[in-house]
């Protein structure tokens, strides 16, 4: 089961699109599990949220074994800098774990037209699939058409696909089959 938790209010139609897309991508039931407050410790001086701290400190959601929880926030996320600097952060997941967080701050403007809303929803769904994919042990994929391709990659098209490629889909299906529940 995938449980989606929001930190700010989100349009119900957007949520419906997201849950339906996640269900199609992983074949797992998906539901909106309500709102949670932003953990204070995760807030940084520049207004961003420390993604790693956020997942440690965020209020838990009641789950069963193999349930995955996806948090959606509109605040920008930050990662600790690595050997070559700080990578851009669209989301962060506990690899093979239970929690993931994505931000809507880097998505294109939602706008008011049907086309822009559709684009925004598709991009949100892609980031959600990407984050949940990490929770099911998927690594980044070199294929720019796959949802597991890094979100900052220059090879990523303006309106990227929100599906997994064959390899990643099969791998995630294998993992889900082998899950305890």
């Amino acid at each position: 089961m995938i449980r989606v938790v929001t930190l700010e209010k989100i349009d119900p139609a957007d949520m419906a699109f997201l849950t339906a897309t996640l269900y199609r991508a992983f074949g797992l039931g998906t539901e909106h599990a309500g709102d949670r407050p932003v953990p204070r410790d995760a807030e940084m001086d520049d207004g961003r949220l420390d993604a790693v701290k956020f997942l440690q400190d965020v209020a838990p959601v009641r789950t069963f074994a193999d349930d995955k929880v996806l948090y959606i926030t509109s605040a920008p996320l930050a990662l600790p800098p690595g050997p070559l600097g700080e990578p851009p952060c669209w989301g962060f997941s506990q690899y093979g774990g239970e929690r993931a967080v994505i931000t809507t701050s880097k998505l294109p403007e939602r706008g008011v037209t049907e086309a822009s809303i559709e684009t925004w929803r598709r991009r949100l769904a892609r980031e959600a699939i990407h984050a949940i994919g990490h929770l099911w042990d998927l690594h980044h994929c070199y294929d720019a058409k796959c949802a597991m391709h890094p979100s900052w990659s220059p090879a990523l098209p303006a309106n990227p696909e929100m599906d997994l490629d064959t390899f990643c889909r099969e791998k995630s299906e294998r993992r889900i089959r082998l899950a305890k529940t």
Partner: peptide, 19 residues
Amino acid sequence: LGVPPALAEDYIDYALMPP
């Protein structure tokens, strides 16, 4: 590096596919 694996992967891909 003593970091979570997902973060390590972000570091690797940041080097491999820089924005």
